[in-house]
């Protein structure tokens, strides 16, 4: 329908598409050409190892003795070291043996190399970003739900608390809030805990708290708008049937509001996933911080920063697809 106003004729349509791809190729080519000018060597093959790498682990003997038997069953090899008074067995999977039957072994000797797949720094960073975002989204929803309900509550104490919270959070930069959570609240809490000889809260949790509170304020406004967009007749009808405020909210208002707030919520949560990149400054090794560390060791900044950006894109795109699916499902019933 909206296309009617500026319909494009077929030949010029093809021309436009061609232009688009030419432009894209031009930009990529341009960047590549520029990097050649500064003698940058692209080494994409170095990137995968930061996701998954084959770690070589040494299997060492803990006792002194003779290798009494080496038995192979499939990929597993069992090496048994035996002395007069003790015996120890080591299982090696998919490895290279360095000893033969009958060899004399001393504690600390390497019996075999064992290979194992391990998650690289980028993979760990990606996982942490996912984890932090997920937890912050869950708490953000809870805070936002209560914040939004408090915001339209008849009780002035609740209402004003919600307004203050929302305005404070929305009025200051997230970076500053993260600093406050970590350097002010974090120091306070952990110093007090230390004085009581108690467990220390790791930085991760202050980061999650900062993100959750930040998102919560925006979710509260989205929830408020969603609830207020439901016609007053709905709550009047349910209250006139004798339903309590909570019953009316749970069964009538929130289910209807939920459908309307999915799109703005999706935008908010996508922002949150991207904003989690700020947590690197308080020593949380999420994707961005992980990328920075890999850049300093690998000296391949160009490849790695592109990879980092693409990983965020994959996360946010998957998430937005999921929410679109959710939206379609709630609408189609």
């Amino acid at each position: 329908m909206t296309m009617l106003g500026n319909q494009i004729k077929k030949p010029s349509y093809v021309l436009s598409i061609t232009l688009f791809f030419l432009m894209l190729a031009g930009i990529i080519g341009g960047i590549y050409y520029a990097t050649l000018q500064i003698d940058y060597v692209w080494r994409w093959y170095r990137v995968p190892q930061y996701f998954l790498f084959h770690d070589k682990m040494e299997v060492k003997s803990e006792i002194e003795g003779d290798v009494s038997s080496i038995s192979v069953s499939g990929k597993q090899t069992m090496i048994t070291v035996k002395d007069t008074d003790q015996e120890e067995s080591y299982v090696v999977t998919d490895g290279t043996l360095l000893v033969d039957e009958g060899d004399r072994i001393y504690p600390g000797d390497t019996l075999a190399f064992q290979k194992k797949w391990k998650a690289g720094i980028l993979m760990q960073g990606l996982w942490l970003t996912l984890k932090v975002s997920f937890i912050a989204i869950i708490f953000g929803i809870l805070i936002g739900l209560f914040g939004g309900l408090a915001r339209i509550s008849a009780n002035p104490a609740l209402r004003w608390s919600a307004i203050t919270y929302v305005e404070l959070i929305r009025g200051s930069p997230l970076l500053v809030q993260i600093f406050i959570w970590y350097f002010v609240l974090g120091t306070l809490i952990n110093t007090i805990l230390a004085k009581q000889n108690m467990w220390q809260v790791p930085p991760l949790w202050f980061g999650v708290a900062a993100l959750a509170c930040f998102t919560g304020a925006y979710v509260a406004e989205i929830v408020r708008a969603g609830i207020q967009s439901i016609h007053r007749g709905q709550s009047e009808a349910s209250r006139s049937l004798g339903m309590t405020y909570v019953q009316c909210m749970v069964h009538v208002i929130l289910p209807q509001a939920f459908r309307r707030i999915i799109p703005p919520l999706a935008g908010q949560f996508i922002s949150l996933i991207k904003d989690s990149s700020l947590l690197g400054i308080i020593a949380i090794r999420e994707l961005t911080k992980a990328t920075r560390e890999v850049v300093t060791t690998s000296l391949q900044p160009f490849e790695l920063w592109f990879v980092c950006a693409i990983l965020y894109l994959v996360l946010t795109f998957t998430f937005s697809m999921f929410l679109q699916y959710l939206e379609r499902r709630t609408l189609s019933q």
Partner: peptide, 20 residues
């Protein structure tokens, strides 16, 4: 008041059925 309301049915001009 919820007890009273359960005893007093109300029908509105705009029906106000629950659309979901």
């Amino acid at each position: 008041i919820n007890k009273i309301r359960a005893e007093v049915g109300m029908v509105f001009q705009s029906f106000n059925l629950f659309p979901h």
